[in-house]
C-alpha cells in the first residue's frame, strides 16, 4: 500500500483547523506535506451547526463547511491526506519516523495537531444508553427529541450553545453544571438566560443515567445540600469539556499537568523539529481561529527549521 520509506518535508498529525491551516501554509510554500487523520477531516468543530465568531463570515458558517473548504484549499496547494492512526514517533538522526496503521513515514519536521478528545461523564448508564438517549452531538440528534425534555450537562460555550440549539426541538432543556456559574461567553449566556425553555441547575452533578430501552430519568445531586433527586427526561447531551489527545506522545515531548504539549513561543515542543498547534498545546484558547493561527505559525517555523 504505502511505501514505508516515503519521505516528506512536513508531516502533520490531525485534520482539524490547526492541521489544515498548517497544511495550507506548508504546501503553499512548496514543502512536500502529508496530513494524517485517524477519523474524519474537520476535528471537533464539525459538530457545530454554526460558527459565529470566525472572522469574515458575517452570517456564520457551519463547522463542516468551514473545515471542508480548508481541506480543499490545502489539497489544491499539493497537500496529501492519509486516513490512518498514528501509533508512535521515533527520532532517527535528522528525521522523525511517524508510525501509522497505514505504514511508516519519514519527515524532516512534524506538526502535532491532534486536538482533544471529548470527555465522558463517567457515570453508570452513560455507555449503555449512548445512542439511546445519551448524545454527544446536539446538531446531529436534537431532532429525535421533538417535544421531549432533555438535559445538557456542562457550562462551557459548546454546552450552552447546544442548549440553545435544542430549544428548537425539545419542550424543555435543563442545563446541569457543577459550578455556580457558567463558563460560556457572556453573549451566549445572555441568549440562554433569556430563553423560557431553558432551566438551570447549577452546583449540581449527574450521578446516574437510568431507563429501560432508552433513557427515561437521571439521578442528580445538589452539591450544596447533598440532596439526591430524580429528573424525568428523554435525552442527556454530554458536553463536559475535553482532554488533549496526547496519550501516545507522553514519552516523546514534554506535557503539562493537563496532558497538553508544552511549546515555546515558536510552537516548538521539547523535541527540535516537532511543533504543536491548536487544542493539543498548552495554553490554547480552543477556538477555531486560534487553532488556525497556530497552524500557520507552526508551519512557517517548521519551514525555517528545515531550511536551517
Amino acid at each position: 500500500m504505502n511505501n514505508p520509506q516515503k519521505k516528506y518535508d512536513i508531516v502533520i498529525i490531525g485534520g482539524g483547523p490547526a492541521g489544515l491551516t498548517a497544511g495550507i501554509y506548508a504546501a503553499r510554500s512548496r514543502q512536500s506535506t502529508l496530513l494524517i487523520e485517524k477519523g474524519a477531516i474537520g476535528g471537533q468543530i464539525i459538530n457545530a451547526a454554526m460558527v459565529e465568531n470566525y472572522p469574515g463570515y458575517t452570517d456564520g458558517i457551519s463547522g463542516i463547511d468551514l473545515t471542508g473548504a480548508m481541506h480543499k484549499q490545502a489539497t489544491k496547494f499539493g497537500m496529501e491526506t492519509l486516513y490512518a492512526e498514528v501509533t508512535g514517533i521515533t527520532i532517527s538522526g535528522d528525521l522523525k519516523i511517524v508510525r501509522t496503521s497505514g505504514g511508516d513515514f519519514a519527515a524532516a519536521a512534524v506538526i502535532l495537531a491532534g486536538g482533544s478528545e471529548r470527555q465522558k461523564l463517567g457515570v453508570s448508564g452513560e455507555a449503555a444508553f449512548t445512542g439511546r438517549g445519551v448524545s454527544y452531538c446536539a446538531t446531529c440528534d436534537g431532532a429525535f427529541f421533538r417535544d421531549k425534555e432533555v438535559a445538557v450537562v456542562g457550562g462551557g460555550n459548546a454546552a450552552i450553545t447546544e442548549a440553545i440549539e435544542l430549544t428548537r426541538f425539545a419542550s424543555r432543556v435543563t442545563v446541569i453544571h457543577r459550578r455556580n456559574e457558567l463558563r460560556a461567553t457572556k453573549i451566549v449566556q445572555e441568549k440562554a438566560f433569556a430563553d423560557p425553555k431553558i432551566k438551570f441547575l447549577l452546583e449540581t452533578v449527574v450521578e446516574e443515567i437510568l431507563g429501560n430501552n432508552s433513557v427515561d430519568r437521571i439521578k442528580i445531586r445538589d452539591l450544596k445540600s447533598g440532596q439526591v433527586s430524580l429528573l424525568k427526561l428523554s435525552g442527556v447531551f454530554v458536553n463536559v469539556g475535553s482532554q488533549p489527545a496526547t496519550g501516545y506522545l507522553k514519552d516523546l515531548v514534554k506535557l503539562d499537568n493537563n496532558g497538553a504539549i508544552i511549546v515555546d513561543e515558536r510552537l516548538e515542543t521539547s523535541v527540535p523539529g516537532i511543533f504543536a498547534a491548536g487544542d493539543i498545546r498548552s495554553g490554547s484558547i480552543r477556538q477555531v481561529i486560534s487553532a488556525a493561527g497556530d497552524g500557520a505559525m507552526a508551519a512557517v517555523n517548521a519551514g525555517k527549521y528545515i531550511s536551517g
Binding site: 485517524k38 492512526e85 449512548t130 445512542g131 439511546r132 446531529c140 440528534d141
Partner: peptide, 25 residues
C-alpha cells in the same frame, strides 16, 4: 430505536446483528 446519527445497522436475515453509533474508522 435510532436516537443518534450517524447510526449504522447491519442486518442479517432480517435481524439487526450490529449497531454502530457515531463516526467509526
Amino acid at each position: 430505536g435510532v436516537m443518534s446519527i450517524p447510526t449504522l445497522i447491519i442486518f442479517k436475515s432480517g435481524q439487526p446483528v450490529a449497531n454502530m453509533v457515531g463516526f467509526r474508522p
